[in-house]
């Protein structure tokens, strides 16, 4: 079940927060391919934010191929036959670099060694994989919770 939490004054633009959280949900298996997302207006009302902001986030996600809208209405998680096909590697690096720099700054502040840092990153990826597998097995065994 998709639950978004938005903070308007955090400094990160709201549309970006929405994009990131939807991607997070897909990555961790909370949202699967073919799941439907609530409409722009519904999402905006639930979050108490401007519908244009949600529309912008959805448009960006659609451009990247993460979600797709059907002409008759309805928004769905897109099929990752070619994962990240809409994005060039250069774009991906551009996105991840600031996060990497921030991690580097924090780590050096805390005098955290590079090896420990790599271990930390591997552990995080492992967690994500575990969560995704757990969600998939839940849905395949038929104990699906929440509504889509």
């Amino acid at each position: 079940m998709l639950s978004l939490r938005i903070s308007a004054s955090s400094g990160v633009p709201v549309y970006l927060q929405i994009e990131q959280q939807i991607k997070q949900s897909i990555a961790s298996g909370v949202l699967c391919v073919g799941d439907s997302l609530p409409s722009t207006r519904r999402t905006a009302a639930d979050l108490r934010i401007n519908p244009n902001t949600v529309a912008r986030a959805f448009q960006n996600l659609e451009r990247e191929g993460v979600i797709r809208t059907v002409p008759g209405g309805g928004t769905y998680v897109a099929n990752f036959a070619a994962p990240g096909a809409g994005l060039l590697k250069a774009e991906k690096i551009r996105r991840l670099r600031p996060l990497a720099s921030q991690l580097a700054v924090e780590a050096s502040q805390l005098r955290f060694s590079p090896e420990d840092l790599h271990k930390l990153l591997d552990a995080a990826l492992l967690e994500l994989e575990k969560a995704r597998r757990a969600n998939k097995s839940d849905s395949s065994s038929g104990t699906q919770e929440g509504d889509r």
């Binding site: 308007a8 004054s9 108490r48 244009n52």
Partner: peptide, 8 residues
């Protein structure tokens, strides 16, 4: 705070 949320 409220304006920041819903205003465009």
């Amino acid at each position: 705070a409220e304006i920041e949320q819903i205003a465009d």
